[in-house]
């Protein structure tokens, strides 16, 4: 198996080349996930770039991204594989007077198998990044289903036997921590806690993501957002919202983030009325 990245520094540079600014922790984890052949579990609040991480790993290495979006009620048939039973019925009707054994062997073959994301990722021979998104939204049983795939990179289908990955996919799991994941799952993964970035890093992210913004405004934005996050809010502003804020200010043609501008555009970053009231009070902003 060819290696994905040669060193943490290499990982950091290649992610930066596709527009993702990785700090030491991210670069090291991304590198190790490939070097040790282990899945990477990225956990953290909404909007800090967890899903984006999987996308840029795929983009940086030229691999194909296969995505499994988890939701409540996700089951094996949607995640792993399913038999195409309608086609099987047709086959049985068309077979006429063929013997039972023959038909049985026939209808449980490759032709009638519907591949779902997990099986698809295991069977691909080209480099693949498998993104299992929002694993915390899925039911606990799905974690059990994942264990075999994540530790041995194989899938067992009773009628076909065990399918072992010819080429290990690069697996990224993301979680918003709405529930505690099982110890068994965590043990098999490398853990990366993505949190809100330092003001310095956030400034660089804004500069990279929002073309045409002044460096001083980006700095001001990042500092102000950091101050907002330090307040006790229901929902702290995410990186995505900082970037939205930067776009908003550009669209309004502002070059400076003064008090009245902040109050006027606070709705871009704070989406709860009580959070806005609190921010206006604590930061001494003029009331709207």
């Amino acid at each position: 198996m060819t290696s994905w990245f040669t060193s943490p520094a290499d990982a950091g540079e290649r992610l930066a080349a596709v527009g993702y600014l990785a700090d030491d922790g991210i670069a090291t984890s991304v590198f190790l996930a490939a070097a040790l052949g282990k899945p990477l579990l990225a956990e953290g609040p909404a909007g800090v770039g967890k899903t984006q991480l999987a996308k840029v790993v795929a983009a940086a290495t030229g691999a194909e991204l296969i995505r499994l979006q988890c939701y409540e009620g996700l089951d094996e048939a949607r995640a792993l594989y399913e038999w195409n039973y309608k086609k099987q019925l047709l086959r049985i009707q068309a077979s006429g007077d063929q013997g039972w054994a023959e038909t049985h062997d026939d209808i449980f073959s490759e032709e009638f198998l519907l591949e779902r994301p997990l099986l698809k990722a295991i069977r691909r021979t080209a480099p693949t990044v498998l993104l299992i998104d929002e694993i915390d939204k899925a039911d606990v049983e799905v974690e059990g289903l994942l264990l075999e795939i994540l530790s041995d990179y194989q899938v067992t289908i009773p009628e076909l036997g065990t399918i072992v990955a010819t080429r290990k996919p690069y697996v990224v799991l993301t979680s918003n921590a709405t529930r505690e994941l099982s110890e068994a799952l965590k043990r098999r993964c490398l853990y990366l806690h993505l949190d809100y970035p330092s003001p310095e890093r956030e400034r660089d992210i804004v500069l990279a993501q929002v073309p045409g913004i002044e460096a001083s405004l980006a700095e001001q934005l990042a500092r102000t957002v950091a101050t907002l996050r330090a307040l006790e809010l229901k929902k702290s502003p995410s990186i995505a919202e900082t970037i939205d804020w930067a776009h908003t200010l550009l669209a309004l043609g502002r070059t400076e983030l003064d008090e009245s501008t902040t109050t006027g555009t606070l709705g871009v970053v704070l989406k709860h009325a009580s959070d806005q009231t609190r921010a206006i009070k604590e930061l001494g902003l003029p009331a709207r």
Binding site: D24, G25, L32, C189
Partner: peptide, 12 residues
């Protein structure tokens, strides 16, 4: 440090 954290520290 990050390598140790990624492999052994699984809760923030």
């Amino acid at each position: 440090r990050e390598a140790y954290a990624a492999t052994m520290v699984k809760r923030p």
